[in-house]
Design a protein around this nucleic acid. Structure first.
Lengths: 157, 157
DNA sequence: TATTGTTATACTCTATAACTATA
DNA sequence: TATAGTTATAGAGTATAACAATA
């Protein structure tokens, strides 16, 4: 314990004065980890992960979206979507449906169970963000969204 | 192609009007992915990942920090740190050193190669953020950092 | 030739649990 | 009993490459 205490009295291990705290990337990562973990806790064990929620959200809002379109919207590879769609289909939240005119394509159709599961989850997710972001005002939240979207502007460039 | 075009003319697949775009968590995730990918590109193949950079940063700034302290500062488990420290040690960037008075503890000491590698990386990382955040002003960036830190306030609660 | 969905595979990051050696 | 570091292991999430069916 001697050395540890000595060092701590020499320098304070003040993380706030660290180089890291000047980087947007680092702060973004820490904030993201918090949000993600709390999201899972809010929806509960056995419920949807953030990414599955995001996929369901787009299928509900854009019925008959194809997997390729969904992958592009979510910013992930098509291959990564397969397991997510499988999971949502296993829960009877959505179904893959053939598209007349192009037999390569699978349209994703929200089912009744998916619509209501999404509505329920939507309430919980909004609540989760409200609680987690209680220290920032509505205006600050809008500003944060605006700034994050500015960063996202260059996506794919 | 018929069905796809038809649907696209019916609704515009306007992702910006999606529920998802109202969630801080989703926007945070997308922004984080961009930053992380660009970080790796900026430092180049075979260089440090963001997390290894963050560990080296703290070892350089807080010489003789222990692994437990480092893990706590980074917000990860001690077990997750072992591979990172191994990697930095293999590169001769840092070394594990015994601490007199407590033989359980390994102090992490930055080596000359580590100091200079960190200095080099620091320049590249600053440059990377400057380029990536070129669409936001210095004041907006400060605001962003402030808001992210407000979210991080509740960390661990 | 190009695209859609899919599979196989691997890599990164993280966590949990159990161990050892010390305290 | 508790702590520091370690190992083994597993689980998300992602990507690349290759394939079959279809365009």
């Amino acid at each position: 314990m001697v050395a540890r205490q000595k060092r701590n009295s020499d320098d304070l291990l003040d993380i706030d004065s660290s180089d890291l705290e000047d980087f947007v990337g680092y702060s973004l990562k820490r904030a993201y980890m918090i949000l993600q973990e709390d999201f899972r806790a809010a929806l509960g064990e056995g419920s949807m992960s953030p990414r599955v929620f995001s996929a369901l959200s787009l299928v509900v809002q854009f019925p008959n979206i194809t997997q390729s379109e969904l992958a592009r919207m979510l910013g992930i590879e098509r291959s990564g979507l397969v397991a997510m769609v499988d999971e949502l289909e296993a829960k009877k939240f959505i179904k893959r449906a053939p598209v007349p005119g192009d037999r390569r394509v699978q349209a994703l159709v929200p089912l009744a169970a998916g619509q209501s599961a999404y509505a329920d989850a939507l309430v919980k997710v909004k609540e989760h963000e409200a609680v987690l972001l209680k220290h920032i005002t509505a205006e600050e939240r809008r500003m944060l969204m605006t700034l994050l979207k500015k960063i996202r502007q260059d996506e794919g460039l």
